[in-house]
């Protein structure tokens, strides 16, 4: 294939990756920003979203769109509820101590994987896309659904931004993030804000998974890569920064597609991971973040 179309394809693929990544990483970033908790189980909430999407979609017969829309609503709600329970039973009792919560969320990661293995099984299972339309370009074909994923993701990101920046809920969250003790003194129920943020963070990962699962499949070990990539995005974007997260997701997603055009794929992964580690070493506040607090 000629270089131009090749680059176009790599960019399109990168945009899809970026769209899903932005949503997933936003959840991680929100939880870190407000609660100062590094949620290692974040990838497992992503996995749960995909697995539940399969369960919901296969419970509905008829046109695949029906099951998919149901999954888009139901799966994130269930995941959010589970996250709420995890927050109440574990994280809250640890007083959100950063190191203790990392260990606890590693435990959570294993427990969720185990639950998925026990109740869902070891197989990879597909979820049918709500529509199948193949966009025909002169050089290659491309999934219309993937383009729709990009659009849906943009809408969801805008909605999240609106809630955070323009509503009372967002203001309460920002106040808690800025100074939780003062917020408490002003009558903000910090515990409930934390629980809510943890649930919303998990739901964002679940939504991202439901969106992307029709282009791949649900499997109980699928949470590891989204976790690593989200970490990368959140680090580059600056921990807790919404705009930084989106920009970093674009950067990582698109460059992941394009680097693989030039390097051997495994080498590309090595270079990308190493680059991120170096960013964290030499610029811990991220490329776009302000100084760490």
């Amino acid at each position: 294939m000629a270089f131009g179309p090749h680059l176009l394809l790599a960019t399109l693929e990168g945009l899809v990756t970026a769209a899903v990544l932005a949503l997933t990483a936003l959840g991680l970033s929100l939880v870190f920003g407000v609660m100062r908790v590094v949620n290692v189980a974040h990838g497992e909430f992503f996995m749960l979203g995909a697995v539940l999407a399969w369960a919901v979609a296969s419970a509905f017969g008829g046109h695949p769109a029906v099951g998919f829309v149901a999954a888009l609503v139901v799966a994130p709600l269930i995941v959010g509820a589970l996250a709420l329970v995890a927050d109440l039973l574990v994280l809250k009792r640890l007083n959100y101590n950063p190191e203790a919560t990392i260990v606890a969320t590693i435990g959570l990661l294993y427990i969720i994987q185990q639950a998925a293995l026990s109740f869902y099984g070891p197989e990879a299972r597909p979820v049918e896309a709500p529509f199948s339309y193949r966009v025909l370009l002169p050089w290659f074909g491309y999934s219309g659904y993937k383009l729709a994923v990009i659009g849906a993701s943009i809408l969801l990101l805008l909605a999240t931004w609106f809630v955070l920046a323009r509503t009372r809920i967002g203001m309460v969250m920002r106040a808690t993030q800025y100074d939780s003790e003062t917020a408490q003194a002003f009558g903000i129920p910090v515990d409930r804000v934390y629980a809510g943020v943890f649930a919303v963070g998990a739901m964002l990962a679940a939504v991202a998974a439901v969106l992307i699962v029709p282009t791949s499949q649900a499997h109980y070990l699928m949470g590891r890569d989204p976790l690593l990539l989200s970490f990368i995005v959140v680090i580059i974007g600056g921990l807790g920064s919404l705009r930084g997260t989106v920009v970093a997701a674009l950067l990582i997603g698109v460059s992941d597609g394009i680097i693989s055009v030039f390097f051997s794929p495994t080498l590309a992964k090595i270079i990308a991971t190493l680059a991120v580690a170096m960013v964290l070493v030499f610029r811990p506040q991220g490329l776009f973040g302000t100084a760490a607090r």
């Binding site: 294939m1 179309p5 090749h6 394809l9 790599a10 693929e13 990168g14 899809v16 990756t17 290659f140 282009t215 791949s216 699928m222 890569d225 597609g257 693989s260 055009v261 051997s264 794929p265 495994t266 590309a268 992964k269």
Partner: peptide, 19 residues
């Protein structure tokens, strides 16, 4: 065309398939 062990999406490798 060798695909790395951690890959979960493949389209970007397909242009390397000779025409």
């Amino acid at each position: 065309i060798a695909i790395p062990p951690t890959e979960s999406s493949f389209t970007k490798y397909f242009p390397q398939i000779p025409s």
